[in-house]
């Protein structure tokens, strides 16, 4: 609201139309006209509800989290005590912190790397002009729109050592199924595989759009100059795709750091797959109900996101090839 009234409050400007001074006849550059101000009201009426919701449910929680992170507060309790930075001290000195940060890093790097490399390969496959490619594109993309809970259950079944397909296939060749659920490292590997399966199509379709925007003349010129397919790919296609790669990298990291559904359904207790976001959930909503400590972890995660975004924007964008 302040933004609307501010220009009109600047003293010297009288409301347009209120006086018949010569200045009123010319279009005044200072202060909005009556028509402008009608527009301002229209703007507030149209955009206001959404902006209020954004302020209330997206931005307020970020600041609220920072405040909560200084409290010792149990969910549902009417009182909380201020503890300063004790929650941060506890998190960073606890033995769990190292494992949570490591798990987060491994999960993020593996899922981002995996879906980008495989996604680009799938995009190259989908870039052929053959019959049925339209169906293949839709099929490859489809897991991305499916419920993470549903996808997680389907793969829990496939990985199940007793009744799962993977176990059955391994037994058929005389091997036994790995203990996906008893070994925390294997559990993490399993969740990474499923996450990559679910998000591969998204990366592939974005890369496909990038591939299709490459000027065919460049590829033909390279072929005439005697460059083989491998040379063409690494020396021409990949550099030309760098804006796409930059975009995919940014969104994939953000998405991976937010991964929740698969982790919750495939490994509810979080042993081996306990990332920052999952630990924040566990602390607030599973058993101990420590709001302050959970908010501390959320704040650490958000700080990490901000830093990563800035680093990417500053460092990477400079090197990205733009046409």
């Amino acid at each position: 609201m302040a933004a609307v009234t501010a220009p009109a409050d600047t003293g010297t400007t009288t409301p347009a139309g209120a006086t018949a001074t010569p200045a009123g006849r010319r279009r005044r550059r200072r202060g909005p006209s009556a028509r402008d101000r009608r527009d301002y009201l229209v703007f507030i009426a149209l955009a206001g509800p959404n902006l209020v919701l954004i302020a209330l449910f997206t931005y307020r929680p970020l600041f609220e989290n920072i405040y909560y992170s200084t409290l010792n507060w149990t969910l549902g309790a009417t009182t909380a005590t201020s503890v300063g930075l004790a929650n941060y001290r506890e998190f960073f000195t606890s033995p769990d912190a190292a494992s949570i940060l490591t798990t987060t890093a491994v999960f993020t790097v593996a899922t981002v790397g995996g879906s980008m490399v495989l996604g680009l390969m799938v995009a190259l496959v989908l870039n052929r002009r053959v019959r049925g490619v339209g169906f293949a594109r839709a099929a490859v993309f489809s897991p991305f729109v499916l419920s993470g809970v549903g996808v997680g259950l389907v793969w829990l079944f496939i990985f199940d050592p007793v009744v799962g397909v993977i176990g059955a296939l391994l037994r058929a060749v005389g091997r036994t199924s790995p203990e996906w659920f008893n070994d925390p490292t294997l559990t993490l590997v399993m969740v990474i595989i499923v996450y990559v399966w679910k998000n591969l199509g998204y990366v592939a379709v974005i890369y496909l759009a990038g591939l299709q925007s490459i000027n065919k003349d460049l590829l033909e010129a390279a072929a005439i100059d005697g460059a083989g397919p491998r040379r063409t790919f690494f020396s021409i296609v990949l550099p030309l795709l760098s804006p796409t790669t930059f975009f995919v990298l940014l969104t994939s990291i953000l998405n991976s750091l937010q991964a929740f559904d698969l982790l919750r359904i495939m490994n509810p207790l979080g042993r081996g797959t306990n990332t920052l976001i999952y630990e924040a959930y566990l602390q607030a909503f599973a058993g101990s109900n420590r709001v302050g400590y959970s908010a501390t972890i959320s704040t650490v995660l958000f700080g990490l996101l901000v830093v990563l975004t800035i680093v990417q924007l500053v460092l990477l964008e400079r090197r990205v090839h733009y046409r």
Partner: peptide, 28 residues
């Protein structure tokens, strides 16, 4: 619609795409 600071308003809307909803769960 004419409005001052439209770029700022749009920037604030766009930045929400970078805020993971999971971070907001506890305060909400």
């Amino acid at each position: 619609v004419r409005f001052p600071f439209k770029k700022v308003v749009f920037g604030l809307v766009l930045a929400t795409l970078m805020v993971p909803p999971q971070v907001s769960v506890v305060p909400n």
